[in-house]
Design a protein around this nucleic acid. Sequence first.
DNA 1: ATAACATATAAGTAAATGCTTATATAAAGG
DNA 2: CCTTTATATAAGCATTTACTTATATGTTAT
Lengths: 103, 103
Amino acid sequence: MPAQLLRALADPTRRAVFERIARAEMTVSQVRKAFAISQPAISQHLAALKRAGLVRQRRQGRFTYYRAEPGGLQPLMAWIARYRAFWPERIAELQLMLRELEE
Amino acid sequence: MPAQLLRALADPTRRAVFERIARAEMTVSQVRKAFAISQPAISQHLAALKRAGLVRQRRQGRFTYYRAEPGGLQPLMAWIARYRAFWPERIAELQLMLRELEE
DNA sequence: ATAACATATAAGTAAATGCTTATATAAAGG
DNA sequence: CCTTTATATAAGCATTTACTTATATGTTAT
């Protein structure tokens, strides 16, 4: 039941914030530079992502470093997986992806 | 970029509607019985699911049968998969799930 | 034909949401 | 100290959203 998770990911800006800090740990100000919205807006998005378990935060002096916690996507992955039985033709594809990753 | 998809899934009621018709094809009225909301509300949820590619509809006389299209989840699956590189400890788990399915 | 039924669409509304500006909190530097 | 910098929180606002009731559309049955 990934309720809060899906709501967190539903907003495009918030999703973009997540994608950004997934590439590299960043401070709030650094995230802000990538977007055309105010610092509070960024902080609010980060708070929402944190509540959803998608983000971790680390305080260092007056800076707060945020990094993505992709493991927070796991409940969503599991939810989707419940439907994999209905689309067997996709499974080969998925397995292929996994195999590629292993190399 | 599963924008419409994630917005469609973000609402708990709509997600429950999807889950319901994933179990079996149903008419609008049959879906309605499972929820404490009006028929128009159900129709609106179904329309949203359809726009997201999560649902198919088949007209038969005055009935409209809806069934889930779990393949519509694929873009979301693919989006999540982009982050699998960051959580290698989950992969074994996922592979296990897939193997179980094969049996 | 007309009534009953199944669904969709329209219009209105209350609540949620994503932003803003203003302010609080806290750390660092002069 | 006092100012600057980094972030969070508060309050307000406009838009979106998930519902409602009312109505339109289309189909079956009498």
